[in-house]
Design a protein around this nucleic acid. Structure first.
Length: 555
RNA sequence: GUCCCAGUAGCUCAGUUGGAUAGAGCAACAGACUUCUAAUCUGUAGGUCGGGGGUUCGAAUCCCUCCUGGGACGCCA
C-alpha cells in the first residue's frame, strides 16, 4: 500500500474515532475542524503525528491531552498497521507503524516504473497553464526564462498529479507594439540598404532586428525599397514575426519547453471576439463613455480605478483583448486557468478578475501566479537588463553559458514570490557547489551499480525486510514520499518543492551509498539492496523529468 | 500617497496553511578514498526569524504599527 493511501486510511480512522466518541457523548463539537497527519521532524515522535486533539480543544472545550486519550479509545490501531500510539507534548498523538510498512513501496515502484509518483489526485480537472507569452518583438530574456521553467514544471507536476493540462503561449501580435515593431524593422531595412534614416523614438534597438532584416535582404534584396510605407511595414512585420516566433519556439524547445497551443491575439480582433465582450459588458451597464473613450467600471469589482477599453481613436486596448482572451479560454472548456505573470503585471489581476465576474464567470477560476523579478549577477555586479537599451541577457545566451539542466533547476528552486538573484559566474562554474550536479551524480552512481550488477531482481522474489539499516529505511521512506510531494506541489502550485525533494532524496542516497555496500553485500542482502537502488533511481529520474532536468547515466 | 512581494546563520534560500528543540547548501574549521564514481560522506561552529505591540494552550507563520529593499500605479503592452 502506498504511504498516501495508508495516511488517508489512518486519517479516516481518526475522524471516525472522534465521531463515535461524540456519538457516545464523550466528546462535544459541531464539526470536526481540519487537522494534520504528518511525519514529525523528530524521529522519537513516531512515524506519523496528528494535532487532531489540539484543534478540537477549543470547540470541545476540553484539555487536548484528555481528548487524545478519548480518541485513542475509539481508534482501531491494529487494523491500520499502527503498533503503538502515544499522547505527547501538549496533546499530539504520535503513531508508530509496523516497521514493515516501508517495504510496500518497492513493488509499487517496480510496477509503476516511470509512472511512479503519478496519481489521480486532480481527478482530471481541465487546467490551462499560460506562461511566457513574451512579446515577439525581441528575444527571450531572464524573466521569460524563469516563467518558462516555472510554468512548464507546474504543468508537468499537475499533469503527474492527475490534472488534464494544456500549455499555452499567448502571442501579442496586435496593437501598438507591433506598429512600433514595423517602424523599427522598416528603419533597419532602409539603413541596410544605405538610406539615411533614424530608428523611431520608441523603436526596438535590439541587434536582432538588424539580423532579421539582413536575412530578408539576402533573399529579396531591395524589392521593398520603393513600396508604399504602410504596405512595406506589413510585409516586414509578417516576415519578421514569423521568424521571431520560430526562434522562440526553438529556444524554448532547447529549454525543454513545449506548448500545446500558440494563441494569436490578432484572431481576437479578427473574429469579433473583442467586440463581443464589449457588447456584453455594455448590456450589463458596466461601460461608460468619457472624453471620447469607452471605460470599464472596474471600481465596481474592487479595483482602484476604472480602465479604458476603447481609446478615443477607436482602437481597443490590450486590456480589452485580454478580457476577450480569457472568456475564450473558458469557452474552450477549462475548469481553471493559471497564468504565470511577472511582478510588473500584478496590477492587472484585480481588473481582469473583475471583468470576468462582470461576464458571470467565477473569478476564482482564474489563478495568477506572480513571480518576482530576476536579477543577474556577473562579477558580483548586477547586470542591467532593459529592452529599451536593447541590452539584456537572452535565454539563448544563458543556455550556452550554464546549460538547460542548471538553468531549469535554478529557476525552479526558488519560490515564485521571492526575488531571484542568479549568479552567472557561479552557475557557469559547474562545480560541486551546484546542487543539480549533486542530484545527477546520485543518479549516475545508481546506474553504475545497476550496470555492474547485471540482472536486477524483483522485490516479490526476495525478502526485502533485510533492509534494516537506518540509512536504508530512511531511503525507503524518502522514495515513498514522492507521490505525496507531487500532489502537494500541484495542489499549491509550488514547483520549487520538487527540487527540494529531489535534493533530499539524493542526499539520502549518498548517505546510504557510503554506509551500505551493494555489490559486495552477502547474498540476500545484495539482491534487496539492488531492488532498493533501482527504486531510488526511478524516483530520482521521475522527479527530474518533471523539473525538466536530465538524468545522466554516467558523469 | 495607494497597492503587491520580500526581510530567517557571514552569503543564497527552505520552513507542509498556527505545532513539539527554526532547517539545508555555499563559505569556515576538523576528519574519511588500495572502495559499487570523493561531483561523495561524517563532525564542529554559526540565530533577538527586520523592530515593537497584540490574538492563544502554542506565532517565523495570523492582526496592527513602524523601518529597509524591489516592483506596480498610462487612452503602453
Amino acid at each position: 500500500m502506498l504511504l498516501e493511501d495508508l495516511k488517508n486510511e489512518i486519517s479516516q480512522g481518526l475522524q471516525d474515532a472522534a465521531e463515535r466518541a461524540k456519538g457516545d457523548g464523550k466528546l462535544f463539537f459541531e464539526e470536526l475542524p481540519p487537522f494534520t497527519l504528518e511525519k514529525p521532524r523528530e524521529k522519537t515522535h513516531g512515524d506519523l503525528a496528528t494535532n487532531i486533539a489540539l484543534v478540537l480543544a477549543r470547540p470541545a472545550k476540553a484539555a487536548p491531552r484528555k481528548i487524545s486519550e478519548i480518541i485513542l479509545e475509539y481508534f482501531p490501531a491494529e487494523k491500520k498497521r499502527v503498533t503503538r500510539c502515544e499522547v505527547a507534548g501538549p496533546g499530539f498523538i504520535n503513531l508508530f507503524l509496523d516497521p514493515s510498512w516501508v517495504y510496500d513501496v518497492l513493488p509499487e515502484v517496480e510496477e509503476q516504473g516511470d509512472r511512479y509518483g503519478c496519481s489521480s489526485f486532480g481527478q482530471g480537472e481541465k487546467v490551462q497553464v499560460e506562461f511566457v507569452s513574451a512579446n515577439p518583438t525581441g528575444l527571450l530574456h531572464m524573466g521569460n526564462a524563469r516563467g518558462a521553467a516555472l510554468g512548464d514544471t507546474l504543468a508537468n507536476v499537475m499533469d503527474a498529479a492527475g490534472y488534464e493540462v494544456t500549455r499555452e503561449f499567448y502571442i501579442n501580435d496586435a496593437g501598438r507594439q507591433i506598429e512600433n515593431f514595423g517602424y523599427s524593422l522598416e528603419a533597419r531595412y532602409l539603413q541596410l540598404l544605405g538610406e539615411d534614416v533614424d530608428l523611431p523614438e520608441n523603436g526596438y534597438p535590439g541587434e536582432d532586428l538588424i539580423d532579421s532584416m539582413r536575412g530578408l535582404i539576402s533573399q529579396v534584396g531591395d524589392k521593398y525599397l520603393h513600396v508604399d510605407s504602410k504596405l512595406r511595414r506589413e510585409i516586414l512585420v509578417k516576415s519578421a514575426l514569423q521568424e521571431k516566433l520560430e526562434q522562440m519556439e526553438e529556444d524554448l524547445a532547447n529549454f525543454r519547453v513545449h506548448y500545446d497551443v500558440w494563441f494569436s491575439e490578432q484572431t481576437l480582433h479578427d473574429t469579433g471576439a473583442i467586440e463581443g465582450v464589449l457588447k456584453e459588458l455594455q448590456k450589463r451597464n458596466d461601460l461608460y463613455e468619457k472624453e471620447g473613450a469607452l471605460w470599464f467600471c472596474s471600481t465596481r469589482y474592487g479595483d482602484e480605478k476604472d480602465e479604458v477599453l476603447v481609446r478615443s481613436n477607436g482602437i481597443p486596448t490590450y486590456f480589452a483583448a485580454d478580457i476577450a482572451y480569457h472568456k475564450n479560454k473558458f469557452l474552450r472548456g477549462f475548469d481553471r486557468v493559471i497564468n504565470i505573470w511577472g511582478a510588473d503585471h500584478h496590477g492587472h489581476i484585480l481588473r481582469l478578475k473583475g471583468a470576468l465576474e462582470a461576464l458571470d464567470y467565477d473569478p476564482d477560476r482564474l489563478q495568477v501566479i506572480i513571480m518576482q523579478l530576476v536579477r543577474l549577477f556577473r562579477g558580483g555586479e548586477p547586470v542591467r537588463m532593459s529592452k529599451r537599451s536593447g541590452e539584456y541577457v537572452t535565454l539563448r545566451e544563458l543556455l550556452e553559458d550554464v546549460g538547460t539542466d542548471a538553468a531549469r533547476y535554478f529557476f525552479v528552486d526558488r519560490s515564485a514570490d521571492s526575488h531571484l538573484d542568479f549568479d552567472l559566474d557561479l552557475a557557469r562554474q559547474q562545480s560541486s557547489e551546484n546542487p543539480v550536479y549533486y542530484v545527477q551524480y546520485a543518479h549516475a552512481r545508481i546506474c553504475s551499480i545497476l550496470r555492474q550488477a547485471g540482472e536486477i531482481p524483483q522485490s516479490r522474489e526476495i525478502d526485502c525486510s533485510v533492509l534494516c539499516d537506518p540509512s536504508e529505511r530512511a531511503l525507503l521512506e524518502g522514495i515513498a514520499e514522492l507521490p505525496g510531494e507531487i500532489c502537494y506541489a500541484a495542489a499549491n502550485q509550488e514547483p520549487h518543492r520538487l527540487t527540494h525533494y529531489v535534493y533530499d532524496l539524493a542526499n539520502l542516497f549518498h548517505g546510504f551509498y557510503t554506509t551500505c555496500h551493494v555489490l559486495n553485500a552477502e547474498p540476500g542482502l545484495r539482491e534487496a539492496r539492488l531492488v532498493l537502488v533501482n527504486a531510488c533511481g526511478i524516483a530520482l529520474r521521475n522527479t527530474l523529468k518533471i523539473i525538466g532536468v536530465s538524468a545522466p547515466e554516467r558523469m
